[in-house]
Amino acid sequence: MFEARLTKGELIKKVIEALKDLVTEANFDISATGIQLQAMDSSHVSLCALQMKAEGFDHFRCDRSMPLGINLSSMSKVLKCCNKDDIVTLKAEDDGDSINFMFESKDQDKISDFELKLMDIDSEHFGIPDTDYKATVTMSASEFTRICNDLSILGETVAISVGKDGVRFSVSGEMGTGNMTVRDNTSSDTKEADRVEIDMEEPVNLNFALRYLKSFAKAAPLTDRVSLCLSRDVPLLVKYEIPEFGSLSYYLAPKIDD
């Protein structure tokens, strides 16, 4: 028996919104410690890794570890019926072929339940090597979304370079070029949400497809902050930590100059 209840049910909705662009179906691996998901996009260029801790739920019970294969676009449709302040309960039997969603309004005056068929999905688990990233930038999640959306007007590929002057996002296309530089502002009186922290061991300059970064940025409603971790010739890690709940991380393979 698996049962998980979350007062802030909206978090589940936001998590699925942040995944469904990249992943159409995935296994939610449930165990006594929580829920994990690892899935790649169809081009095998990016990987999403979700972690939701059992302690992050108001109630969490999982008698047997198992994968729950779910079509994310179906799940997103079901979650459209979940209102902002609803309490969400997920349930699945150990040998069942479905998952049950229950949405309760805060005042308990409306209760909806939905059942979704589970799917058998071959999961491709990747061993992600521990990386000592040479540069880590932590900034406002909404500001990062803004940069990705704004720069995509000009081109498809963004060069991210971290140097002593800050982190520069550059795009060039047929129309022209664009650069946005964000500087470390930890020494000034910037309010917490707008802080930019740059931790750099050595300068890094890598190129990435903006299309994927824009999809990752859909996770911004989950939390205020995002971290970008870079090292030469390794995938970029874009990490959204969700306080007291878990994290949503994305990996993106770099582009190389051919």
Partner: peptide, 14 residues
């Protein structure tokens, strides 16, 4: 011209 690499070039199948 930019060549998009795949993740399998960096991560191992677990």
């Amino acid at each position: 011209y930019w060549l998009q690499r795949q993740l399998s070039a960096f991560f191992n199948d677990a």
